[in-house]
């Protein structure tokens, strides 16, 4: 089963839920897809480099190039411009579609790999852990997530999603069996939860909600979930001890009494829904 932990709003507790769920279950695969700002490993250990993630970018043979401008005209991302006697290529605008190499009438464009990030891995007890790290200055997170989507696992894989509702989140949600949406009971939490629900529903994935920092705000999230028929599967109370353990990079499920059972109960409920 592929379980995605997502949220819309950042900082609601995706990492907290993903890590503590994995620690409580003991045996599973945990994949951190927030490749712009991966944090799960900070709670678990020191992963090793597994492989580079590359995308293909064009290389221009200026001997062959006739400056006809067909590649520049084709490129939807304006990454190429031909201003005779020059061909200009803007690396940061390239989306690696490969179109320029196909369209060139004189075969002057080839493609070469460019490193945009890495995948790391480690074993923590019976948890198989993977994360991706986008290199600083690279705009496109999705190719790194695409690589993480190809991770082999047996049984359960927990995918910790990036925040938001744009391309990296869609990539993470691909082929998910269940989406667990973590929110906080505030107007910002509610607004962004609704956005996340829209995205997940558009992809036909079953949903459950976890309310984190329960008690800090208002009843907006509860009311919305009740009206919309979304199950609130777990509430994590506002607790200074949890915030302090989080700040030190420690999972609380195996430190504070009762939470391990709560997370195992959460997983049992998700399994029941998916079946």
């Amino acid at each position: 089963m592929k379980l995605v932990v997502a949220s819309g709003k950042g900082g609601t507790g995706k990492t907290t839920v993903s890590v503590n769920l994995a620690v409580s279950l003991g045996k599973c695969t945990l994949v951190d897809c927030d490749v712009e700002e991966p944090n799960d490993a900070l709670f678990l250990g020191d992963p090793r480099h597994l492989e580079d993630v590359t995308v293909l970018v064009p290389e221009f043979d200026l001997e062959k190039c006739t400056l006809c401008g067909e590649c520049a005209e084709f490129c939807r991302y304006k990454a190429i411009a031909t201003i005779p006697p020059k061909l200009l290529y803007f690396d940061e605008l390239c989306h690696s579609c490969g179109g320029c190499a196909i369209i060139c009438p004189v075969d002057a464009v080839s493609e070469k790999p460019k490193m945009i990030g890495e995948v790391r891995t480690m074993s923590v007890g019976d948890i198989d852990f993977y994360d991706g790290r986008l290199s600083i200055g690279e705009p496109a997170a999705s190719p790194v997530i695409r690589r993480l989507n190809a991770v082999d696992y047996e049984g359960l894989a927990i995918y910790d999603s990036p925040p938001g509702t744009a391309c990296p989140v869609l990539e993470t949600l691909k082929r998910a069996d269940f989406a667990l949406l973590v929110t906080e009971p505030t107007p910002f939490g509610l607004n962004d939860l609704k956005l996340a629900v829209d995205v997940v529903r558009a992809m036909d994935i079953p949903i459950g909600v976890v309310i984190n920092r329960d008690g800090i705000g208002d009843s907006g999230v509860e009311d919305y979930c009740a009206e919309d028929g979304i199950e609130i599967m777990m509430r994590i109370p506002e607790d200074r001890r949890i915030a302090e353990l989080y700040s030190e990079g420690r999972a609380f499920a195996d430190v504070l009494d009762g939470y391990g059972d709560m997370f195992r109960g959460l997983m049992a409920r998700i399994e029941a829904v998916v079946r």
Binding site: G10, D34, N39, E92, L134, G137, P139, A166, E248
Partner: peptide, 27 residues
């Protein structure tokens, strides 16, 4: 936006000053 990817890079081009709001946690 949060993160360091595409929307952040589009936000940062040509600004005079960035103010980063952080919190005292490992993350």
């Amino acid at each position: 936006p949060p993160g360091i990817g595409c929307p952040v890079i589009a936000s940062i081009a040509g600004v005079n000053q960035v103010c980063v709001v952080t919190e005292p946690t490992v993350s």
